[in-house]
Design a protein around this nucleic acid. Structure first.
Lengths: 215, 215, 215, 215
DNA sequence: TATGAATGAGGGTTCATTCAT
DNA sequence: TATGAATGAACCCTCATTCAT
């Protein structure tokens, strides 16, 4: 199960919770669902599979959620909300372009660590989903995302921190993809911490993998 | 349609004949299917949608193919066969590690150009598919792929062409994913040729995006 | 193949035949079809299976026949026509009840020998078919059949050749079924000739299998 | 519906309870399915027809059963299990050959009375089914069946209870077929009880239908 | 909260049949 | 006469969803 408690809220709910033994059955189920969606794909995941993983019958899920789609929506919304909490903090910190890029990448790997399943789902499904009204928030998020990265890269080029000959859009795509695609192989609790992966990754992106010729 | 001209043959056929213009209704249909699979995802693609795109009824497809799955298999097999033709040529050319890496990346972007749809399908579906006996050839290909890249990177490190502090496996994953994920946004006939994209990408990977401090 | 040439006609056609090499492609195909119908059941037999056995494509059969059902009809009609040729000869011969019964049974086993496939089809399918207008001739045949047997049995009882305590209808059913069901295991050219099987069977039906107590 | 009361249990349940009157929606549905299979043939029976007879939609059947085929399997298994309960009791009772034969025949007609539909299905379909792994139990049953009958007949011949000139295999086939084929016309609740039919039948088989010549 | 049973809309597939060549 | 390709109806089955209990 995805044991990802929403950071700040979790404490609040723990306090106010009324039915003692039900701190958040809902989030528990969402975690389970996210896990299965990530592993098998949204379409290939039947409601019954989710229910099986949760130890209940398919129909029973509908007490908690309106539909399979609403589960997906909630999973993605929760993830993106948290992601933007992090990103906004970085973007509002008044850092230089290189430091911003480093912070964004590091924050991204942290989110992958926390929401691996949601990220994997996002990667695989968002392209089809954005077309639906219900998932318009994905498009909105993508726009903000693109803007944040592009402007950081452009600022870097302008300030001569990044190379002048970059095709900024192309670079943006490469960087974006490489970061998020990591969700497909990253396993939380493995040998690399998110921060370490970020460092390695940044080292490669910023300085390249080739040995520099010593003049 | 999949604008995949068979490299060398394309000229020959263009010269010789149009009357036998239906040598391969089969390939035509596979191209259509690949397009739809790539756009909507394999599971979400109904056989009827493919048939619609091909201007026929769903049942008619079964005159040409055994099943929806066999279409998928043939699409992926054809793509991988051609990919390995190209890779094997590169790997057998006796190049140094840096040149090998450059040639592999360039070849990869050429394959994306030729088999965009198949690559996109491969990216999205292969993880679920390898579990099935029928798609065991995907696992085999992945093994060879990993070996080719890892050994190239290791050779580069040993020959001091690549940085000594690389985490080779991590680097492999980054490079691999970034290259192939390009299939999700690449549009053949767009403003960037495969070779140009390869060049930009290699520049980033090899030398980094940061401006080098002049000591 | 069902090597059942229509007895008398075969010679006639052989004489009149115009396309030298096509004495009766039609009957050949019907024989093939009957074979497959008998082995797999009418419903489970696809037109393609018949065509495969005949070395042609499914669609090609429609040059020779209107439909799958018309093949079935022709198979059954041919069989019943011949059956009644034989039965009518027996019934019109003015035999006593016991001799009539013996002759009918013997004739039946001869038909099984000649039209094994058709008999097997008849056994399995006639019950469903009679409901259709097209196969009304099956019902007609059944009526005649029942009448022939019942009257023979009744005559036998009246003439004290058969036991007085017989339930004639029940006996009729037993005799009828046992005779025809033999088509399901009979193999032409096996160790028992039709006449020998008839003899054994008649011996059992007429005299019983128990040893008679000698008073 | 299949009016198949479980022999001994029927009284117990009749006494204890009606509220838990739905212990077996499953058996109810199987009875319905058996009825339709018997009447229309397995292949010609659509799942929808079964559902219609049961007053539900086709898809709903799949809540109770895995597939159409699994319904067939369960129907045949249930029938054969009960049949062998009866046969084994007879075979283990230490009767003489004639009494064994009488008891087997009587038991057979009782099973036809109880499982008419299943017997009819068995008759029509078992030949095609045995080829499938899933229905291997049919072949097993057939082997035991043959052995039981053949040995009884042989014992009878050896003990001079049955005629010495019998072709035992042929006799076995006649007896076997005549008994079971009765399922195609037998109607439970008709004018003949199973025991009466058995008596008539045995009288014919044992003593023949011909009047004995009084010496 | 959860179950058991059912719904209804498809989805992949089969197959008898048609028809231009 | 036969082929190759397609049609269209029907079939078995799946699955998200509903609802009385």
């Amino acid at each position: 199960m995805d044991s990802v408690p929403t950071k700040k809220k979790s404490q609040a709910t723990a306090v106010t919770a009324e039915p003692p033994a039900a701190p958040d059955r809902r989030s528990e189920l969402l975690g389970t669902a996210a896990e299965v969606f990530a592993e098998q794909g949204y379409n290939a995941t039947t409601v019954r599979k989710i229910a099986d993983h949760a130890g209940m019958l398919a129909g029973s899920l509908y007490y908690h959620f309106d539909s399979k789609e609403s589960m997906l929506e909630e999973i993605l919304r929760t993830f993106l909300d948290e992601l933007w909490d992090g990103y906004d903090a970085v973007l509002g910190a008044g850092l230089g372009p290189r430091e911003t890029l480093e912070a964004l990448v590091t924050e991204s790997f942290r989110e992958i660590d926390r929401h691996r399943a949601a990220v994997a789902i996002y990667q695989k499904e968002s392209k089809q989903l954005v077309a639906q009204e219900r998932f318009a928030f994905l498009a909105e998020s993508q726009r903000r995302f693109e803007k944040a990265w592009l402007s950081t890269l452009e600022r870097g080029v302008a300030e001569r921190v990044f190379r002048a000959d970059l095709d900024v859009r192309l670079t943006y795509r490469f960087v974006r993809d490489t970061v998020w695609v990591a969700a497909s192989w990253y396993r939380p609790g493995g040998q690399h911490s998110p921060e370490e992966i970020a460092r390695q990754y940044l080292s490669m992106v910023l300085d390249g993998i080739a040995v520099r010729e010593q003049p």
